[in-house]
Design a protein around this nucleic acid. Structure first.
Length: 579
RNA sequence: GCGCCCGUAGCUCAGCUGGAUAGAGCAACGGCCUUCUAAGCCGUGGGUCAUAGGUUCGAGUCCUAUCGGGCGCGCCA
């Protein structure tokens, strides 16, 4: 059920009947104020201009043509030509009765399932995951879950960075440690971060070490067995780390989704050959470059895109072209969605242009690079700890659970020790995820321990608390979520809840289209907030409430709980019966 | 130098194809627990939507310029 779409379709038909073009914007939106009804149709004003007629008069004609009698109790024209629609309570109730029997709640069927490849998380395997990896990982996972719930065929890909120059450096450093007689088991790969820092320092400072590192990259990429063996050590250790983080975060990425950079190795040379053959790539200063006139500067200098280095090495540009081909051709994707930080925006624009020209990316395939902003410190500079390092993701998550545990012990002392630990885990992890997911992905944002680990206000625990309130009521009433009863929407709070429940599909559509899970966060927070108001204003199990009204309110509460649970699940956040 | 993203309340952020009087949370202040969990509810205060122009019936949203922040612009990813 998508009320906005329904109203828009009806408006479009009415506009067509009045002689307006089929692509006229209906401009159906949610009303900003209760006195303006539930939805408003704003298209009459722009359309009047097109017809050179009076907007209010056109709005009047539209209203006559619309015939919303079945769903609206009031259709009013206001201001310069707004059409305010107030929905009928019995109509709303009827829509929700259908949802009560549907595991997909108020969602309609997906009319045209697509194959969507989603590339997210993509940690650099040379390092342990730090807080900066949180965004790509959980935003991607939330979008993936939404697409799957909607009914698309989703192919997850974890495009792990396992093939770059940094591995030459790591292997060179490891070789030296081994040569010094340190046993392989003893080598401190347990802390990849330290190991990486040591190697990086030598790479920057030590004469000859950088060259040695580059030699190792070439050896590795050309299949040297010894190098591959050492490389595999790093990869295994790194994957073990990310597995733990994914498990803690309830992220749905497994080993089967790992499609690392190295997996495209054999495709690179043929792609470069083909680019050369098509005349797209030309030699320039020793390297092979595709010059893009589309991205030229004001003087007309084209934007260079290097696909092969001097000396024959490949780079991430080449790998991403290979990924395009694989996803578009082999996986038959209708849409490719890639989550990386915003710094790579130009790179992906170039990849798409070249891939389309070279026929690696079919025309009908959508290629959506979804950038996200940088995590900033409270000083307004890119986030760093006092010592100049980053905060490990695992560390942040541990701290979150510790802080949540303290709150649980204080507020839910009647729970068993085991329950307290479980609530603390769900609340702590949920809070971190929600704090990050609720922000618009494109803008830079400030990292703050206190904001990220807050449990008051618009946070995950607020939504989880709303869920436990319903659970508590159901427990007392001795029923479960399968309970069904007729709905009567008497109070304003009840009606508002019903409208909100029916906006799930609208919200999900927007989340999937633009890959913006913060809209789902907003939606769930507003739903919870409206439920809290309803909970205070509309007693359910208290004395003097008639059975029909009681059952109706139970029904409404159940729908809220189910929507909350489902919605939070789409964000990868767990609920509990008590807290 | 050129390009991309951003600038909204003291702080952190929403603001959906341009719509009516710009919204939350935190912080501050005032109420509400013998009745469904107070991690809650109700209320008060707080704004030149960076600045200046422009487009239009209507601009936080679109265009131009300026200022401020982040980032990117050939052999890292």
């Amino acid at each position: 059920m998508n009320i906005k779409e329904l109203l828009s379709a009806k408006t479009q038909a009415a506009m067509l009947a009045l002689g307006l073009p089929a692509d006229t914007n209906t401009a159906v939106t949610i009303s900003t104020k209760v006195e303006f009804g539930d939805y408003q149709i704003n298209g009459a004003m722009a359309a009047a201009k097109l017809l050179k007629t009076n907007p209010r008069a056109l709005a009047q004609q539209l209203v006559q043509q619309l015939d919303l009698a079945d769903m609206a109790e009031k259709v009013e024209i206001a201001g310069p030509g707004f059409i305010n629609v107030t929905l009928r309570k019995d109509w709303l109730a009827a829509q929700l009765v259908g949802a009560s029997q549907n595991p997909r709640l108020t969602l309609s069927a997906n009319p045209a399932p697509q194959t969507v490849v989603v590339d997210y998380s993509a940690p650099n395997l040379a390092k342990e995951m730090h807080v900066g990896h949180l965004r790509s990982t959980i935003i991607g996972d939330a979008v993936v879950r939404c697409l799957e719930f909607w009914g698309d065929n989703v192919i997850r890909q974890n495009h792990m960075g396992d093939w770059g120059t940094q591995f030459g450096m790591l292997i060179a450093h490891l070789e030296d440690k081994l040569a010094a007689g340190i046993d392989l088991e003893q080598v401190a790969l347990a802390d990849l971060e330290d190991f990486y820092r040591e190697a990086k320092k030598r790479f920057d400072d030590e004469a000859g070490f950088a060259d040695k590192s580059r030699d190792y990259v070439v050896k590795l990429q050309s299949g040297d067995a010894h190098c591959q063996k050492l490389w595999q050590l790093f990869i295994d250790t790194s994957i073990k780390h990310s597995d733990e983080v994914y498990k803690t975060l309830k992220v749905t990425l497994g080993h089967e989704h790992i499609k690392p950079e190295s997996a495209y190795n054999s495709m690179l040379q043929p792609i470069v050959d083909s680019l050369k053959q098509q005349g797209l790539a030309v030699e320039s200063e020793g390297a092979l470059v595709v010059f893009l006139q589309e991205l030229a500067d004001k003087e007309g200098n084209p934007s260079p895109f290097i696909v092969q280095k001097t000396g024959g090495g490949f780079l991430y540009a080449t790998t991403d072209l290979a990924a395009c081909q694989y996803r578009s051709v082999d996986l038959a994707a209708d849409r490719i969605v890639i989550f990386t930080d915003a710094r790579q925006a130009l790179h992906f624009k170039q990849v798409e242009l070249v891939a389309r020209k070279a026929g690696l990316l079919k025309d009908h395939v959508a290629y959506d690079h979804c950038p996200f902003g940088t995590m900033m410190g409270e000083d307004g500079k890119p986030f760093k700890t006092r010592t100049g390092g980053t905060v490990k993701l695992a560390e942040l998550l541990e701290e979150a659970v510790v802080r949540a545990q303290a709150v649980v012990e204080q507020k839910s002392s009647d729970l068993s020790t085991e329950e307290m630990a479980e609530v603390a885990r769900k609340v702590g992890i949920g809070a971190v995820k929600f704090a990050d997911l609720s922000k618009n992905r494109t803008s830079d944002y400030v990292f703050s321990w206190d904001a990220m680990l807050s449990f008051d206000g618009a946070t995950a625990p607020y939504l989880q608390y709303a869920y436990t309130r319903v659970s508590g009521i159901l427990r007392r009433a001795g029923i479960d979520e399968s309970f069904v009863a007729p709905l009567q929407l008497l109070e304003e709070q009840e009606k508002q809840l019903a409208v909100k429940l029916l906006r799930l599909e609208e919200t999900l559509q927007a989340v999937m289209k633009d890959a913006v899970p913060n809209l789902l966060c907003n939606y769930l927070y507003e739903l919870s907030s409206q439920f809290m108001s309803f909970y205070e204003a509309c007693p359910i199990l208290k004395e003097g409430i008639e059975p029909d009204l009681k059952n109706s309110r139970l029904m409404l509460s159940i729908l809220v709980a189910r929507t909350l649970k489902q919605g939070l699940d789409l964000l990868g956040i767990e609920v509990m019966e008590r807290m």
